[in-house]
Amino acid sequence: MARDARIELDFADGTHSFRLGWGELATLQEECDAGPYMILHRLHSHQWRVQDIANVIRLGLVGGGMPPADALRKVRNYVEKRPPLESHPVAIAVISAGLLGAPEEPVGEPEAPIPEVA
Rank of each mutant, 00 (worst) to 15 (best):
E86D: 13
L61I: 01
I7T: 13
V62K: 02
R73W: 01
R76A: 05
L43Y: 07
M1K: 08
A71H: 05
F11R: 05
A93T: 04
V75C: 02
G63W: 09
L72D: 05
E111F: 09
E86W: 08
L100F: 06
G64Q: 05
E105Y: 04
R49K: 15
E105R: 03
G108R: 02
P115Q: 14
I39N: 03
A5S: 14
G63N: 07
P83V: 15
A102M: 04
P89A: 15
G21H: 10
P36Y: 11
P115A: 12
H44Y: 11
I57S: 13
E24V: 12
Y37T: 10
R6E: 15
R6V: 15
I57E: 09
D10I: 13
A118Q: 03
K81S: 12
Q29Y: 10
V94D: 02
P36S: 14
G64Y: 07
P68A: 10
D70G: 00
H88I: 09
E86Y: 12
G64C: 04
G60F: 08
E8W: 09
V94H: 03
D10A: 14
G65M: 07
V107H: 08
L40F: 00
V50Y: 14
L20H: 05
L61C: 03
A26I: 08
M38A: 04
H88M: 13
Y37A: 04
V90D: 11
L20C: 08
A34T: 01
I53A: 08
L43M: 08
H41C: 00
A93E: 01
H41K: 00
Q47L: 05
D33R: 00
G35T: 06
E104D: 15
W48E: 12
D33P: 02
T15R: 07
L40C: 02
A97S: 06
L9G: 07
H16D: 01
I114P: 05
N77W: 11
P84Q: 01
D70W: 02
P67A: 08
G21L: 10
V56M: 03
W22T: 14
R19F: 14
L28C: 05
D33K: 00
A34I: 01
I95K: 00
V50Q: 13
